[in-house]
Design a binder for these strands. Structure first.
Lengths: 507, 507
DNA sequence: CACTAGGGCTAGGGTTAA
DNA sequence: TTTAACCCTAGCCCTAGT
């Protein structure tokens, strides 16, 4: 994939509430060596956001703030007060937590943290060549306190009283809100807004993956998740449903190859880049005055980056790995992947214009909308969801649900799906009470021969929904009761089958 | 290295404040396939201790507590109140922290955690067949609160105020102290004390790694780090100096091969094992009365063990190796093959002349007997009464806030144990709990609210052998007679249980 | 009522095949 | 490699018969 395009996509994804797993996959497919400072910062912010919403404010967060400060410094972006406060709060939290765990052992892990963070990081910060913008008087005051606690029990007791974690959460949140606002909308969002304003109807592929509303009547949705709530926003709803996310990831990755931006890039690229400078760049790099197209020297910037693989992105990658994100894919060399990928894309583009876009059923399958099936497990008191599962949430696209449970459907048995995807007429199965399976025939002749496996029969959505209803009614574990009550649906399923299926459905 | 010896060494290391890296190395060098339940529990306790002193109380800790409970259950060790409280506090912490991070996004990671922990773990815990000793009314009340916070902003705000982490730290610490004390000194420590008392001058090699004082003038140092401070004790001082630790590891591993216990094993092993029975095992496995007989078949037990390597211990080993002590692997296959591991060691140590029977110490330690701490709660404070002390807004539905986390109720929660070995919630409280969720209603009209099954308890080899002896003596079919004659062994088995087990053994 | 025999059930680990 | 569907079985429950 073209480096510019892949970076645009990555940038877009980073700023919006797509699941982390998608970010991970994209990262592994996109060459990062040429990332510009804006993208790096976006990556770091995104990571911090994830850490925050995972309630995991550790020294990794400290590291990230330092890296961001470095980038800002290079771009002549001044360190804000909120950033300093966030850094301080996180540093305090990363130290005090050990005291909270073992108040009577300040000499243990707590002291180690003081050395690591306050004698290490913070001291380096104020000494050396340049004084970090993160350094503050507040920091110094805290250091005195924290050092004192190592030997002064009274200070120690006072510190233990703190809820340093909540404080850190709060400060990080404030900083994130400010930072996302400061960095502005993504390039693709800007393009979308512009082209729409010009009546282009130019769609950046956000419909299936990024925006559930298709963007048709929402002109400012380019910013729709950068409002500060983004830090702990909608994306989290999906966390209980990782499998589903993974599936979507695959789909959306494919989709990225088909971004209209890429298809039209030979024609529009120069033009778009031109606009890019005046919209995104202008907002991202406030310290740079843009007077003309030629002054930015994009070529030079890129090449510089290419020869110097950015250490900080590497670090972020490590951080991402160590955090709860599933970023194992990143271990591999992203460049190798990118090369392969670009080959695929190139040949694909050169050939016919095959559309791999999502099916209609997925058009509204936005990642931010939780699977309604998940919420109908019967034990969900979500007031917005009908517990009986009989009436689907009107806000949820019906096409996501393969089967709409209703009384009529529950009673009638429209078809029996065999393993080879062939729909058998109902009649056959109806009378086949005793002859459901092939091995029935061989029961009489071979006495000790191991029973052949039952033929694999895929579960229909009717069966699934009925099972759900059954668990709702009888409770999990009462498989015999469920089987009996819905005996017409489960005619050729055993109680164990029901149990196994439920186990699968709960995974 | 001889399996016994290596296990003794490992056990010793686990209980003392050696650095984790040493534990990890030892684990990888020691065959764990024959690990008994006591060693497994020690391993888990050690892991929990590390998590605690790293101020990292996550769902891993929850998992560990569940695994320990599982082991205790099979060993007929009753769940203590402190363990229940620790579990509850950790569960609350693992949920509330998301709320603390993003108070205005209860629908995000917080809700996911509620589903994962409270609708998942906790619900499974009370469900049929698996009622865990960790289940408590306190847990139920918290669940109500935490569920309410998903949609009730006011509950949400109240929960955010909690310092759930500190609470969890504290409860885990209390539990750890109790658990280390309950598990007694390590075998090597016992041996050391004994041999010293006999004037042997027997040194267990602790001088270089384990005990800096050489142990010469400290007769009770077998317990020197099990005093509650051990949880965040000396080991932490080493954490800032990993390289040095690694060097020590090598040295100490070598040293282990030179343990006097091993050198003299051919001579003393039988003797030591005999003592082991009466000291360590007697304290660890209170359920065993050792009088000496002939009915055991140690060879068979051993071979069975060796072919069934303990999966969970292996997983713990892996987890320990990864620095962060992540135990996600433990999610799978918790104690599938907890088998009769504890019995195995017993039979092995005892050789052929061992008789099994419950010790005096266990007469009240049966799973059927409620925890004495719980029992002493003669009068049960009605939570609804306590609630009045908070003077809530009269406009607030009280049923939504059934429990004030900070009030005295948090301390002790009564249980009512039903005749069928199942711990039932106090009916009064049951009724007082608001029917907040719709699925409660669906449970009402379910045909039979079948009482939960008895918790599955694996048969120990002691029980098996006793059953065999019983059938020998009284003949098959006289289950009541057998049960009566070996009533101390079969205290919590019914005649039908014996019959069923025999049927299984004859297959 | 107490007990036993025997069928049935569930949970959970394992296996197979797509 | 993954995993949905299926298999195996220990331990527990239910009921008829004595």
């Amino acid at each position: 994939m073209d480096p510019d395009v892949s970076r645009w996509v990555l940038e877009f994804l980073l700023r919006n509430s797509v699941p982390d797993s998608l970010i991970a996959k994209t990262l592994s497919a996109v060459p990062l060596s040429g990332a510009d400072s804006s993208l790096k910062k976006t990556l770091l912010l995104r990571t911090l956001r994830t850490l925050h919403s995972n309630a995991s404010i550790t020294e990794t967060a400290l590291e990230i703030l330092e890296l961001i400060e470095e980038i800002d410094c290079n771009d002549a972006v001044p360190v804000t007060d909120s950033m300093r406060r966030a850094f301080c709060a996180v540093a305090v939290e990363c130290t005090v937590k050990y005291l909270a765990a073992c108040p009577d052992d300040a000499a243990g892990n707590y002291f180690a943290a003081v050395r690591r963070i306050w004698r290490g990081r913070v001291t380096r910060m104020e000494s050396a060549g340049r004084r970090s913008g993160l350094f503050s008087e507040e920091l110094v005051r805290w250091r005195d306190d924290l050092e004192a606690a190592v030997w002064d029990t009274r200070v120690c007791e006072r510190l233990v009283q703190l809820n340093s974690r909540t404080e850190a959460f709060s400060e990080v949140k404030v900083y994130l809100k400010e930072a996302w606002e400061g960095i502005g909308p993504s390039f693709l969002d800007s393009v979308e807004v512009m082209t729409k304003a010009k009546g282009f109807g130019f769609d950046v592929g956000g419909e299936s993956v990024m925006n559930s509303d298709g963007g048709d009547n929402d002109n400012d949705n380019g910013n729709h998740n950068n409002d500060g709530h983004g830090a702990c926003g909608v994306e989290n709803e999906n966390q209980g449903n990782e499998k589903e996310l993974e599936q979507r990831v695959g789909a959306s990755i494919d989709l990225n190859h088909q971004l209209p931006a890429e298809k039209e890039k030979e024609i529009q690229k120069g033009n778009l880049q031109h606009r890019f400078k005046h919209t995104v760049l202008h907002r991202c790099h406030k310290g740079v005055k843009l007077t003309g197209t030629e002054e930015v020297e994009p070529a030079k910037s890129w090449s510089k980056c290419d020869t110097v693989p950015s250490a900080e992105v590497k670090k972020v990658r490590e951080s991402l790995k160590s955090s709860s994100l599933e970023l194992q894919a990143l271990v591999k060399d992203p460049l190798a992947d990118a090369l392969q990928m670009s080959e695929v894309v190139r040949s694909n583009l050169a050939g016919k214009d095959i559309n791999h876009g999502p099916s209609i059923g997925n058009q509204n399958g936005d990642v931010d909308v939780p699977d309604p099936n998940v919420d109908q497990n019967g034990d969900v008191p979500d007031p917005n969801v009908d517990q009986n599962g009989d009436v689907p949430d009107p806000n949820v696209c019906n096409s996501i649900v393969p089967f709409q449970p209703n009384d009529a459907n529950l009673v009638k048995k429209p078809f029996v799906r065999c393993s080879n995807n062939v729909c058998c007429p109902n009649l056959l199965e109806r009378k086949a009470t005793a002859r459901t399976y092939e091995w029935d025939d061989s029961l009489d002749n071979s006495p000790q021969q191991a029973q052949p496996r039952k033929r694999k029969r895929k579960w229909t959505s009717l069966e699934e929904e009925t099972l759900r209803a059954g668990v709702n009614k009888f409770g999990e574990g009462n498989w015999a009761a469920i089987r009996g009550f819905y005996s017409d649906v489960f005619e050729n399923r055993s109680g164990v089958d029901l149990k196994d299926k439920w186990r699968n459905m709960m995974r």
